[in-house]
Design a binder for these strands. Structure first.
Lengths: 237, 237
DNA sequence: TAGTGGTCTAGACCACTTG
DNA sequence: AAGTGGTCTAGACCACTAC
């Protein structure tokens, strides 16, 4: 039996396994932190060998969707918000990060954002503004955009309920699990508004990171611009 | 025969395979761009199965040391210089990059550099200054440090002979193959000297990336600070 | 057609974690 | 002791590239 699904899809078996696991994930079969069935159990269920299941799981682990713990099992990884990683200059001390919602408004996509999200010109979007603090001190301002059609009904209440973790909102409220794409980085002078939020003087150099996030199927659904001060913390690329 | 080497080293077989391939690489058995023996041939040579060889190769491919081409073979990847990747803002047009050597001088390691290179305080180092141009326009200034003991005899002539590709110098002149570690990024105002080199005004925001590179055995041997202008190009993290 | 990497199997044993 | 992921095998077939 060389095929896991009856359809004549010409994709490697291990990728079909990956997709069937994603389907179960999206159907809510296993929730955050919960253990998946063992590799052998999954192999029986999908009618493939353990090695093939393993290769499918490998991919999902690399994508940050699952985590493995030897001797314990394979778990759905907690959906963490993604806004790059800050590093204190001297020590890798564990700093406490908090996120605050500044605004969530409806708007229309500009050229660049519409293109990267695969939307038509001036398509309706939600623009979410957030502020990240490290040890209470402002560190980054994040502006995120998503299609207002795909995420219809988004509002500040739902975002706050998820502690301003957008990834959690997409998952809980819309059943969309997302992985981060690599960022494009540049340095720029802080615009007046951003400078005020970050507690620095205008025109201070800040780091800008533009990144997108995609569904597990590969569709880009989130665009973000992160502006962070790097006088006290560095950004880990 | 569960062991590839006669020593009782407690490391997975596939990592032993990786190390034996590295050893052959460092012995000059295969040079840049050349094909390795086939997976089956390597399996016979190391007395392991193809799958185990494959897993060892997988790792080296992920580390950028080898490249695979289906139907052709596995090749030693060209040792490319690493200074992050520039991206033109609009299109991903193929821009021509050139590197110019500004200086190569002997000095003493500062605290931070000595620590990250695992050297004693004020250990002798070579400091190499280079300028990267994209389409002829200055883009980045790179300051690199290496131990003057490990790389004894380094000079401008040797660097220029390798078209200012330091990785090539380490490999050809010292037999050291190296892989890049992730960078720490920050934004800063351009110091006067750097600004002059980059053709921008002093205090213009620039992106600073600090990265190190390690031998395949894991020892950090190169420390670099890259300062780049991001008004025309972005840095891909 | 021949040789390569890419996938897949069925089974085995090891290392780790929990009760 | 039982169950999990981690490693490893010997062999098979497929997909791609060259000649």
């Amino acid at each position: 039996m060389p095929t896991a699904s009856s359809l004549p899809s010409r994709q490697p078996l291990y990728l079909q396994v990956r997709e069937r696991i994603i389907a179960s994930l999206e159907a809510g079969e296993w929730s955050d932190g919960e253990a998946l069935p063992s590799e052998i159990a999954l192999a029986q269920r999908f009618q493939v060998s353990q090695g093939t299941v393993r290769k499918g799981l490998d991919r999902l682990v690399a994508e940050g969707v699952l985590v493995r713990r030897q001797g314990l099992g394979t778990f759905v990884s907690a959906t963490e918000d993604d806004w790059g990683c800050a590093e204190s200059p001297a020590e890798a001390q564990r700093a406490s990060n908090t996120i605050e919602l500044l605004a969530c408004a409806r708007s229309n996509a500009g050229e660049a954002i519409a293109t990267s999200l695969g939307l038509r010109r001036a398509a309706p979007v939600y623009v979410i503004q957030r502020l990240v603090r490290i040890d209470g001190r402002p560190f980054a301002h994040i502006e995120s955009c998503v299609s207002a059609e795909r995420f219809a009904g988004l509002d500040a209440r739902r975002i706050k309920q998820a502690q301003c973790n957008l990834r959690l909102v997409w998952l809980r409220e819309f059943g969309v699990r997302v992985i981060s794409n690599s960022a494009r980085l540049r340095a720029d002078a802080a615009p007046r508004e951003a400078a005020k939020l970050l507690g620095i003087e205008a025109d201070t150099p800040i780091l800008e990171a533009v990144k997108t996030a995609s569904t597990l199927e590969g569709a880009v659904v989130e665009w973000s611009l992160l502006r962070c001060r790097t006088d006290q913390y560095a950004y880990r690329g």
